[in-house]
Design a protein around this nucleic acid. Structure first.
Length: 285
DNA sequence: TATATTGTTACACC
DNA sequence: TGGTGTAACAATAT
């Protein structure tokens, strides 16, 4: 549920806290969530904190990397030496309670006495150790990842090529990480609403004009999400270092039955690719 | 109590 | 083969 804007916000704020610190110890409480040998990264310095798609990457000394995926319910909480807590990730569940808590799966201990808690209710998230001289983050992550939708390579021509190849629903394609990396259920719904395109349209049925609108819509909602420091509602709510909530209010997501902000029709809900999908039948076609 | 939910992946199918 | 659809994962809310 943290999608590109939420992970980007986490990256920006976490960076300020842990860049330059040395990892002194890693406490793995849930074995399946830590892939690799922790001994290989203990003692290393965190040189950089980056993001690719919805994945966080800690660049460590000695060509080592820590790759972190929060999946649906992961949250990162930085606590300083004095016990000050800084939330990064989702509000729910159990944020703000004592740490470590029931959902704390992994704890990083740093050279300055600070700690980073990786909480994850559902245990789908993970941390991976990787060693490589590769510089490209996709290669570091070792997975096929599509274009960054906020990057310069994400062009209308690229979308046109991707959409033209498939008859899958356009929303499913937007969420396909191998095509476009970082968009999840929330921002896919939001982008298609902004574009005025029904989420169940077959990707290869879109006109050039519609593809342009989708392209614009994707960039617009992601930018807005980052500017707002993440989503404001539901499980997705993000809380930053100062305890402030994300500000991005959903246009259609989770607004079934409510009036469309654009044309006053009732927002409908359907299922696409097994996922909850929200759209306005009045102004999306 | 059964079902929906969520991102990603493994796997079955044609 | 590849493009596609779906079950599985975990835990909670409804």
């Amino acid at each position: 549920m943290p999608e590109l804007p939420e992970v980007e916000t986490i990256k920006r704020e976490l960076k300020e806290k842990i860049k330059g610190l040395r990892i002194e110890e890693i406490e793995v409480r849930k074995k399946k969530m830590f892939i690799g040998d922790k001994k290989e990264v203990i003692g290393r310095e965190i040189l950089k904190v980056k993001r690719r798609a919805k994945i966080l990457v800690f660049v460590l000394s000695g060509n080592y990397f820590l790759i972190i995926h929060l999946k649906m319910s992961g949250q990162l909480i930085y606590g300083d030496k004095n016990g000050g807590k800084i939330m990064m990730g989702q509000r729910i569940p159990f944020a703000g309670r004592e740490l470590p808590g029931r959902t704390t799966r992994i704890i990083f201990y740093f050279s300055n006495g600070g700690r980073l808690f990786f909480n994850d209710l559902r245990q789908f998230g993970w941390v991976k150790v990787r060693k490589t001289k590769e510089r490209d983050l996709s290669r570091v992550i070792g997975k096929k990842l599509g274009k960054e939708p906020m990057g310069s390579e994400f062009k209308v021509s690229y979308l046109k090529k991707v959409f033209g190849k498939t008859r899958r629903a356009v929303k499913v394609v937007l969420m396909d990480q191998e095509k476009i990396a970082g968009i999840g259920n929330i921002y896919a719904n939001e982008a298609l609403f902004v574009a005025g395109v029904r989420p169940d349209r077959k990707a290869n049925s879109l006109s050039e004009e519609e593809i342009k609108r989708v392209h614009k819509g994707v960039i617009k909602v992601l930018k807005k999400g980052i500017k707002a420091k993440g989503a404001s509602g539901g499980d997705e709510a993000y809380i930053n270092t100062k305890g402030e909530k994300g500000n991005y209010d959903f246009l259609v997501y989770q607004r079934e039955g409510e009036k469309c902000v654009r044309c006053k029709e009732k927002i409908e809900r359907m299922k696409i690719g097994g996922r909850g999908t929200f759209f306005c039948p009045g102004c999306q076609s």
